[in-house]
């Protein structure tokens, strides 16, 4: 019960943050160069009727804060306005671009978890050995390799050079074809993330393995499996889970660029195209969506930390 209450409190805090972010997102419209009407008109002909319709829709004759209020209430009801380019509802534009992004994200997540965590643990346990040192070196290059630059190299080597993988687009909606098309983008996106998670896991494992409780468990004959799972892995989990929030924000920016490099019709590419076209409603919608995502993931991380560590739970109980 106390935990639910704590999470509710967190939730309220996050709603406050969302309101602040939404205000900033809304202000984008006013901040973009040129008049708001001109921005919203886009390439449409500027007839009095259209202008009046836009003014009515966005309540442009009202004070700024009232405009914001109208925008926010419709946003909460799922109405983020209409795309200037296509006239479609922003939500449906975003929805049509989301699948590719989510598939890319899932693919990347699998790579990060399957490669990053085991490698990090192995390096941390065998600290100072050859494997650890080569992994540590590789993570530094991985952290310094931005997804878009790496993407170009992958395209050249595996696409143009070796011809193993397609270099552009998401392919058909068939699962195999999709995986085939998303492999290079996922690798480009995952490299930096894997490097991050390897470092975090390695540091956490090294820290845990040096703790007295590991030595104490070993001296009293607790089995090796139990020490590794019940002691090392569980105590490592907390810092690693906490790093998930960090991973997410790196991944979000990375997705935008990687989708652009590989011409994937996902939300990231939509963002870049919308920015180029000054399609402010779509940009606002995407930015708002990202803010909700960040807040939600942070909430999940908090909940996970509560589940893992009794100390945080006790803090909740007071």
């Amino acid at each position: 019960m106390a935990i639910v209450l704590f999470l509710l409190k967190r939730l309220v805090g996050m709603v406050v943050i969302l309101i602040i972010v939404s205000f900033l997102v809304f202000s984008l419209l006013a901040l973009s160069p040129g008049s708001v009407v001109a921005t919203l008109l886009g390439t449409q002909p500027s007839t009095p009727q259209v202008v009046a319709a836009i003014k009515a829709q966005y309540h442009l004759n009202d004070p700024f804060l009232v405009q914001y209020w109208h925008w926010l209430t419709s946003a909460v009801h799922g109405d983020l306005g209409r795309s200037i380019q296509s006239g479609e509802a922003v939500t449906s534009v975003i929805a049509s671009h989301l699948p590719v992004t989510l598939e890319l994200a899932a693919y990347t997540l699998v790579l990060v978890v399957v490669v990053g965590i085991p490698v990090g643990m192995a390096a941390g346990i065998g600290r100072g050995r050859l494997f650890d040192r080569s992994v540590s070196g590789a993570t530094i290059v991985g952290m310094g390799a931005p997804g878009f630059a790496l993407g170009i190299l992958l395209i050249y080597v595996f696409g143009v050079g070796l011809g193993w993988f397609p270099v552009y687009g998401a392919g058909s909606s068939q699962a195999i074809d999709r995986v085939y098309h998303l492999t290079l983008p996922a690798v480009a996106l995952a490299t930096g993330l894997v490097a991050l998670i390897v470092r975090q896991t390695r540091a956490a494992v090294m820290d845990v393995m040096e703790q007295d409780y590991i030595t104490f468990a070993r001296t009293r004959g607790v089995g090796r499996a139990r020490v590794m799972l019940g002691y090392a892995l569980r105590n490592t989990a907390l810092p690693v889970v906490t790093a998930a929030g960090l991973l997410l924000i790196v991944a979000i920016s990375g997705t935008v660029l990687v989708e652009t490099v590989f011409s994937l019709p996902g939300a990231g590419q939509l963002m870049v195209q919308a920015i180029e076209a000054k399609n402010v409603p779509v940009v606002q919608g995407l930015a708002f969506f990202v803010a909700v995502l960040v807040v939600a993931v942070n909430l999940l991380v908090d909940a996970a930390a509560l589940m893992i560590d009794p100390r945080t739970r006790a803090g909740v109980r007071g």
């Binding site: 104490f216 001296t219 100390r311």
Partner: peptide, 22 residues
């Protein structure tokens, strides 16, 4: 494996770090 715990055991200095916090 046959000795540790069942025949020889070690108690460490710091009670604050010797037990698994979880």
């Amino acid at each position: 494996r046959a000795l540790r715990g069942s025949r020889v055991s070690l108690l460490l200095q710091d009670p604050f770090t010797m037990l698994n916090p979880l």
